[in-house]
């Protein structure tokens, strides 16, 4: 009964892992019948190239900014939603909605909004006498733009998980603290936040892992990849772009995989010791 699924997982999940390592040792153009073995040559080439610094920096900046942005904003939204006014459930669903939408569709919508001349953002800025930044031409601004949209799309996920965390805090303890004269800010800083430790850790890891895999939004909003070449984008461009360097692309995929699996192992090893307060 389980066999078809297991065969599929083996063929399309496990097999590629091994094949990637093998391909990464080849100098091989995609579709070509011949390949030469270069050992670790592709890795050496990647890490000694100018591109490596840019790619790794871009990946790190994108990950840190999107994770930080969606977690901080997510927590703020969760705090706003953690009230007993009617309509909270509608807002909760609403803020989660962008998370389930097509990254391609969302990317197109925001490209139009960000357009430096005809976009609604430029229009609003003009109203205040300011000029729109040239989002599409400057690599740094392109990255800022993509990060902004990614945070917009993902903060609802953090908000909903944080909200569930907030609602599971022990109400009697919080009330006792309030009776003892602890203000809202103190209760949040000294009680809620530490008690939310496990939730924060859960979100930290899941959002880092998914931001390292972000592709559709980045690809659509910056088709030339200027300023936004993260590891995954670089692997795509090298393998399936003009050059079709399959071996080189596989090597970058292996680097990405090692990064992802390391994070996963760190989380498994650390979580139970480090984050439990309650």
């Amino acid at each position: 009964m389980a066999l078809p699924n297991l065969v599929l997982i083996g063929a399309f999940t496990y097999r590629p892992l091994i094949m990637n390592i093998y391909y990464s040792t080849l100098n091989w153009t995609l579709g070509s019948a011949t390949a030469t073995v270069v050992g670790l040559g592709n890795y050496v080439r990647f890490f000694s190239s100018d591109a490596a610094g840019t790619v790794l920096t871009t990946t790190a900046v994108f990950a840190v900014a999107t994770v930080g942005g969606s977690m901080v904003l997510g927590l703020l939204v969760a705090l706003a939603l953690n009230t007993n006014v009617p309509g909270t459930n509608v807002a909760r669903a609403g803020v989660f909605a962008p998370y389930v939408l097509s990254g391609v569709g969302v990317g197109l919508v925001w490209l139009f909004i960000f357009d430096p001349v005809y976009g609604v953002l430029a229009y609003v800025l003009r109203r205040f006498g300011a000029e729109s930044p040239r989002w599409f031409n400057d690599p740094t601004l392109s990255l800022v733009m993509v990060i902004t949209v990614y945070v917009w799309k993902n903060l609802g996920y953090c908000a909903v998980v944080y909200l569930a965390g907030l609602q599971s805090l022990p109400a009697d303890v919080m009330e006792a603290a309030a009776l003892d004269g602890a203000g809202r800010l103190r209760r949040f800083g000294y009680m809620s936040l530490p008690l939310l430790g496990p939730t924060t850790f859960f979100l930290l890891i899941t959002t880092i892992l998914s931001s390292l895999q972000a592709f559709d939004l980045i690809r659509i909003m910056t088709p030339t990849s200027q300023g936004t070449r993260t590891l995954i984008y670089e692997a795509y461009v090298q393998g399936f772009g003009a050059y079709q360097r399959a071996g080189y692309s596989a090597a970058i995929s292996v680097v990405l995989f090692v990064l992802l699996i390391t994070l996963t192992i760190i989380q498994i090893a650390w979580v139970d010791r480090k984050v439990h307060y309650a």
């Binding site: 389980a2 297991l6 997982i9 063929a11 399309f12 999940t13 496990y14 097999r15 590629p16 892992l17 094949m19 990637n20 391909y23 995609l30 892992l209 390292l212 895999q213 592709f215 995954i232 692997a235 795509y236 393998g239 399936f240 399959a246 692309s249 596989a250 995929s253 292996v254 990405l256 995989f257 992802l260 699996i261 996963t264």
Partner: peptide
């Protein structure tokens, strides 16, 4: 087998793209 399924959860589909394409 269960652990194999669990570990598969950790493999990001994006890194499997090239070998799957070749296959």
């Amino acid at each position: 087998i269960f652990v194999a399924v669990l570990v598969a959860l950790m493999v990001p589909p994006q890194v499997a793209i090239l070998p799957n394409y070749v296959l």
